[in-house]
Design a protein around this nucleic acid. Structure first.
Lengths: 134, 134
DNA sequence: ATTACTGTATTAGCTACTTAATACAGTATA
DNA sequence: TATACTGTATTAAGTAGCTAATACAGTAAT
């Protein structure tokens, strides 16, 4: 597992760690029960303080995505498939809710909002295999 | 024009001012060219420092939604209808883009994302006439 | 020029957040 | 128990963002 941190993006390091690990788990690139890099190991790789990594791990545990075992290590949580699907749906819904509120407030018709989403979805879906630097 | 500020929401005052005025302009509840409350007037109503209001106004001018005239006052910008529609579309697109990226990353199919958006749209659209306190 | 409004630049204090240094605590193995 | 790993609680420093106090600047009418 390799994480990349952009120190100039303005996005806090611990959030970047959270987002990347969450995505790897949700996309199935981290097996259930698999052990992740230790706090100090990942901290060294990212050239960051161990506590920063620990903070990210702590928040991921709150989300139910990992299990921390003091003295042992960190493991990808075992998620039932329906639970996993539910979590994914919730992540997306949180964002779509804002979009829906905005569309209603601006008086943009439902069909138009739907078309915009479909267009954007296809745009990014076609880039899945390539690197996106933005 | 009446604005309401929630001092406990965690959202900065100047952002709340921006969002509410932007929404009033976009929804057509502020006529083009109409004069808005002066900096000090609005600051008094909101019980806030005039500079906080001035900051909100400055950012609204950058968006092209208002015109500031020193010594005279603040006026809702005259927007051509197509420009207005374009601005509205951009506001929504910025949010929908994040949703699309998330959906693709999580492997959620386009149809499902579309259904979620439609459901949420209807949910908030049906509340348009009532007060929402959350 | 005076008055009475407009908006604004500068500065400073406050707060919340992020990161890091240090010392501590749990587990497994020999 | 000793060792060598695990993660963590506490504390503090640094930073960025928000708000406000003050003094300044433009406009219009008298």
């Amino acid at each position: 597992m390799l994480l990349e941190i952009d120190h100039h993006s303005g996005v806090p390091i611990y959030r970047q760690v959270i987002e990347q690990i969450r995505q790897q788990i949700m996309a199935g690139r981290l097996s259930e029960g698999e052990q992740l890099m230790s706090v100090r190991e990942l901290a060294a790789q990212l050239k960051v303080n161990p506590m920063t990594v620990s903070k990210a791990y702590a928040l991921l545990e709150v989300e139910g995505l990992v299990e921390r075992r003091r003295g042992v290590g960190l493991f990808a949580a075992r998620l039932r498939k329906d639970k996993k699907a539910h979590t994914k749906a919730r992540l997306l819904e949180d964002i779509l809710r804002k979009a829906a509120v905005t569309a209603v407030q601006l008086g943009i018709p439902e069909e138009k909002a739907g078309e915009m989403l479909a267009r954007l979805y296809r745009k990014y879906n076609s880039r899945t295999r390539s690197h996106s630097n933005e």
